[in-house]
Design a protein around this nucleic acid. Sequence first.
DNA 1: GCGATCAGCC
DNA 2: TATTGTGCTGATCGCA
Length: 652
Amino acid sequence: LAYLSRELGTIIREKDGFSDINDFKRKDFNKDELLTIFKDLEFNSFIKKMGLESSGDEQEIQEAICCETISNLESFEKIVNQLSREKLLSILPVFKKTGRVGNMLEIIGIGTEEKYYFASTETIDEISLAKAVKVILESEDITLISYNIKELYTWCLYHNTEIHCQLFDLMIAEYLIDALASSYTIPGLSRKYLGIEVEMPKEKKRKGRQIELEQVEENPVELLGKAISTFRAIYEKQKDIIDKSKQNYLFYDVELPLSLVLGSMEYYGFRVDKQYLEEYGARLDYRIKSLEQTIYMLACEEFNINSPKQLGVILFEKMGLKAVKKTKTGYSTDADSLNEIIDSHEIIPCILEYRQLTKLKSTYAEGLVKEINPETGRIHSSFNQTVTATGRISSTEPNLQNIPVRTELGREIRQAFIPKDGYVFVDADYSQIELRVLAHITGDEVLQNAFRDGIDIHTLTASQVFNVSMNNVTPDMRRSAKAVNFGIIYGIGDFSLAKDIGVSRKEAARYIENYLSTYPRIRDYMENTVKFGKEKGYVETMFHRVRHIPELKSPNYQVREFGKRVAMNTPIQGSAADIIKIAMVKVWHELKKNNLKSRLILQVHDELIIETAIDEVEQVKEIVKTNMESAAELSAPLVADVSVGSTWFEAK
DNA sequence: GCGATCAGCC
DNA sequence: TATTGTGCTGATCGCA
């Protein structure tokens, strides 16, 4: 072996045929082939850099596009009226991001396949423009092909306009076709479906310095015209795929209307008590300062506690504590690791508390205040519909889906979330939705019956796993069983379960085995869904949301195992996501239909929050509960628990 | 600007 | 044999 290694490691220094150094120069390359490779790999900046843009057929298409810019209101109104008699229209608005809640419109393009019309707010004022397009947006006979209808809808709400068109949104369609695509841009879609290169006008950079390069600004209408002219053809192709994947219900009845629901949630926002947050932050600060001093004293040195690197050096080198785990760059200092050595030095609990408090202060106390809109006094988070691999929605700027709740101190932040005057919160959350979905799709009757009979599911699992009767289950056993239940959903192994509930690995393995033999259908499901995923390359939810899992074919063991867990978890988490989306659409319609003042303002995966007018509380409670529980018919019935409170803290 | 680490939620 | 629970977003550090 040593000889073999030596041979492998020896550099061959003599080789014939390379006498001329010029042979090593880069020669001409096959442009077409390189372009295909780069396109395939999405090396778009290389394509640009090397001037590989194809030109042939593109030119023809561009010349076929018929675009007109309209610069006075009367002509625009006339054209819009004409267009409102059409059946199928494409629409492409461009917004400028400002502090205003409905973004500011810059340009809007509308048209049929034959011709597209553009209007700019530079020549026609925004309000008149909004009034003009109302005839189109509020017509139920038109199918509107859009890109990012949510953004258009928040703008509509600002201008007191509704959208009643039949919708087809290219971004959302693509999300259902491939939930894992990294971005859903118009140029990306047009490249994928039509092989056409289009470009979107660059957003003007607001960087203060240097205006030279950015000012080049080609005629935006020219670019936009080309972009909107691809909508119709992309629509045809996506429509087909969605239909063939049995996603019509999910797309037309869930995701598209949901887009408007999310738009309105963003538009209305969540009222926040700024003063409360500031006082809360000050309170934290007082304690943080004191902890800081204690830590410096115990370490006999000042250092940056926020730096895991510096902290690691202090704890594990200077103070000689035992490191239990390593990361790829050094010592592990996360809460799990520190908790294992919590008794070895009094500095450890201080650090843990310091971490908790600084998190609360910077992310929540300070972070949330920054997001309060000065005009509305409310926080207008963005709800993204095309981010997650499982179908959940995500929330950013700020993330309202991770507001603390577990620790008492953190939970107090929820007292800053208040309703507008004369309103309260109705808060409804699904009870055990993922386990009910699990019971439903596995067909396990023991589990289903337990849910039907309203039995406490963790206690039941405990009695099965530990082989004791239901009334002999201790709180400790129940806690472990709860971990087992969640672990099953995530596709857990004995190692992690053991660590989670603090038993030996063997013990944990026995729990899992007990569980799977008590619920044989669950074992079957886990095996079958992985098999399905391997054969088809994807798994799907109850409503045919699809997730491709290329990891299942990976040569790498770890990656493949990850693929298996994903295959087991996605149909469960994803179906639960489908269900609450259905519920949101139903609740939203019902509030509208009854002309209520109450508004859905937040979703947190299994929970809905409605800012409710005091005189509508009883009605809203009823609407939320029945619509959530009837969102899907499961053989383990859905249950939603509803409560009312005058802050988010109280409503839970 | 970006990866790594940590921490918050379901 | 080696490894080990899904899905997210944000703050901070430290390097390039």
